[in-house]
């Protein structure tokens, strides 16, 4: 039996909104430690790795490891029915063919209950393992979202060049070019506004703008995003949860 109670429905809403345009369905793997997901988009370019640790939940129990195949569009429709501030409890029996979803209004005496039909999903898993990182950039997630949106008007590729003291985001397209440079900054009064860049090796990587547009749908999950880049390797874009993370692994573009 799985049972997990979120203090606020808004957290699961944000997670599902961040994932559903990239993958239509995925397996939620539930263990005593929490819930994890690995899913790859249809073009096999963008991988989502989600970990919701049990401490994220107000209450959590999972007696036996279970896998729940979930259609994210359908889940999004159902959890859209609850208010952001509602308690949200998900539960499933060990051999379940449905996920039970309950919203509890914290003010009114109102409980809403839904069942979501589960899917049988047969997906290959990729072994992403621990990766070496040549450069790590941490910046406000809203700033990163704006950079991606602004650069997308110019080109279907975004080049990220990291040197010791700056990160350059560059787009070169038919109508013109754009450059945005960010440098490390410590803001003591507003730590969420700080920018850090750590570098072992200079980086020059290009990524598809349309995939970055999918990644920045996670912006509301965290005030910060951490970007880990390694030469000739996929980029990792991580949004921290209160306890856990939503990570995107994005395959780069290479010169022919």
């Amino acid at each position: 039996m799985l049972e997990g109670k979120f203090e606020e429905a808004s957290l699961l809403k944000k997670i599902v909104e961040a994932m559903k345009d990239c993958v239509s369905s995925c397996n939620f793997n539930c263990t005593e430690n929490g819930i994890s997901v690995q899913a790859v988009d249809n073009s096999r370019v963008l991988l989502i790795s989600l970990l919701i640790e049990k401490d994220t939940f107000e209450e959590y129990r999972c007696d036996r490891n279970i896998t729940l195949g979930v259609g994210l569009g359908s889940l999004s429709k159902i959890i859209g029915n609850g208010a952001n501030s509602d308690y949200l409890t998900i539960s499933a029996d060990d051999d379940a063919d449905k996920l039970n979803i309950i919203f509890e209004d914290k003010v009114k005496d109102k409980i809403s209950e839904y069942n979501l039909k589960l899917l049988d999903i047969d997906a290959d898993l990729l072994d992403v393992g621990p990766m070496d990182t040549d450069a790590t950039i941490t910046l406000p997630s809203a700033d990163f979202a704006k950079i991606c949106k602004d650069m997308k008007v110019l080109s279907e590729s975004l080049q990220i060049i990291v040197t010791k003291d700056s990160a350059l985001f560059q787009s070169v397209g038919d109508i013109g070019t754009g450059n945005i440079v960010i440098r490390p900054k410590t803001d003591i009064d507003h730590p969420e506004e700080s920018v850090t860049i750590s570098l072992d090796k200079p980086i020059d990587l290009s990524f598809g703008s349309k995939y970055l547009s999918d990644i920045i749908k996670a912006t509301s999950l965290s005030q910060k995003v951490t970007i880990k880049l390694t030469d000739q390797s996929p980029g990792v874009f991580e949004y921290k949860l209160p306890s856990g993370y939503l990570r995107f692994y994005l395959a780069p573009k290479f010169d022919e």
Binding site: R44, V45, D127, P234, A251, K253
Partner: peptide
């Protein structure tokens, strides 16, 4: 021209 790589170019299938 840049060619889009796919994830299995980097990560083995489990």
């Amino acid at each position: 021209f840049k060619k889009q790589k796919i994830l299995s170019d980097f990560f083995p299938t489990k």
